[in-house]
């Protein structure tokens, strides 16, 4: 059984205020894939991610992680195998020190303290912020907070990494560092973003959401270079794929 596979079947979800956020979403993401989920504001990206980790449960349809359906009973297994990095790192960092924050997950799984310490060190080292371990999280810069937020998830050794707008509010250098870091991960990755260039660089496959439905699903280059589709979904062709504004030459 592989926990790395994520299967979403006819997923529908309506918020209590009557808004239909997801209206029949289907896809299958297999082991090691890196998938970008793009769409306009309100297209249902964040709602979809929340279904993958069992924060929300579908009104109709189902989500399977590996062969395990996401239900209240299976949550401990699901959440160990799917790690979610939230859009705002401040929501994820609430302990007095970076160390305690990264240790929060492993400690909840009752791991021995030696193992917890080992995992915290490994996770912080992977994202390159081991030197920050004794600092209080609220004193870190945006890029550092994001790195620590990723470390908090890595310390749980998930098979699948789910990220909600990882490059939002990062300066160009921090953004670049994050992209390089994520390129080095062998996890199955599911990334929602409005940063089309990041999706282009990181993900070999892209799913486009529009009004709670999958509007397109295919190889990133093919999907993101489809100008008509992008405009129809209130998106834009990545700058990398657009013609040079000075000489007019096209990169592709």
């Amino acid at each position: 059984m592989s926990h790395h596979k994520i299967e979403v079947n006819s997923l529908k979800y309506q918020y209590t205020d009557g808004r239909q956020a997801l209206n029949g979403v289907n896809f299958l993401i297999t082991h090691g894939e890196s998938v970008g989920i793009v769409g306009a504001n309100g297209a249902g990206k964040s709602t979809l991610l929340m279904h993958l980790v069992g924060i929300l449960f579908p009104n109709e349809g189902e989500v399977n992680v590996g062969d395990v359906p996401v239900t209240k009973k299976t949550l401990p297994v699901i959440r160990q195998s799917v790690g979610m990095v939230f859009q705002n790192p401040d929501d994820q960092l609430f302990m007095p020190t970076v160390f305690d924050d990264v240790a929060f997950g492993p400690r909840n799984y009752q791991l021995p303290e030696e193992e917890v310490e080992k995992r915290v060190h490994e996770a912080l080292d992977t994202v390159g912020v081991l030197h920050l371990k004794s600092r209080p999280p609220y004193k870190l810069s945006g890029g550092e907070k994001r790195a620590v937020a990723i470390a908090t998830v890595l310390a749980m050794k998930p098979d699948v990494l789910v990220m909600d707008e990882p490059t939002a509010a990062l300066d160009p250098k921090s953004r670049r560092r994050l992209i390089t870091l994520l390129q080095g991960f062998t996890h199955t990755k599911i990334i929602t973003s409005h940063d089309m260039d990041m999706v282009f660089e990181l993900c070999e496959r892209t799913i486009v959401l529009k009004d709670g439905k999958v509007s397109a699903d295919g190889p990133t280059l093919e999907v993101l270079s489809n100008r008509e589709l992008m405009e129809d979904c209130s998106l834009e062709v990545p700058l990398t794929l657009q013609a040079c504004p000075v000489c007019g030459r096209n990169n592709i």
Partner: peptide
């Protein structure tokens, strides 16, 4: 709203009502 998001992120990291403070 914010407290809810913080709680979600705690639940995502295996929080089950037991606050473990380490060694």
């Amino acid at each position: 709203d914010r407290a809810q998001r913080v709680y979600y992120s705690m639940r995502c990291r295996g929080f089950k009502g037991e606050y473990n403070v380490g060694r």
